[in-house]
C-alpha cells in the first residue's frame, strides 16, 4: 500500500481544468426561459349566476 502515493501534478492540473470547463458549460446552459405571465380576461358582468 503506497504511503503518500505519488501524484502527477501536471496531468491532474489539466484534468481539473477540463472538469472546471465542464462545470462552466453546465452552468452556462442551466437557465430557465422567462415565462410571460398573462392574466385571464375576467368576464366582467354584473350578473354572475343568473339564468
Amino acid at each position: 500500500m503506497p504511503q503518500m502515493a505519488p501524484m502527477s501534478w501536471l496531468i491532474l492540473f489539466f484534468l481539473f481544468i477540463v472538469v472546471f470547463m465542464l462545470f462552466n458549460v453546465l452552468t452556462y446552459f442551466s437557465f430557465i426561459y422567462p415565462v410571460k405571465s398573462f392574466k385571464k380576461k375576467k368576464i366582467d358582468k354584473k350578473i354572475y349566476w343568473k339564468w
Binding site: L12, L15, V19, F23, L26, T27, F29, S30, F31
Partner: peptide
Amino acid sequence: WLSIFLGLFFIPPA
C-alpha cells in the same frame, strides 16, 4: 480522482 466528475451528475439537466 474521477470523483470530481460526480458533481456533474448532480447539476440538473435543462
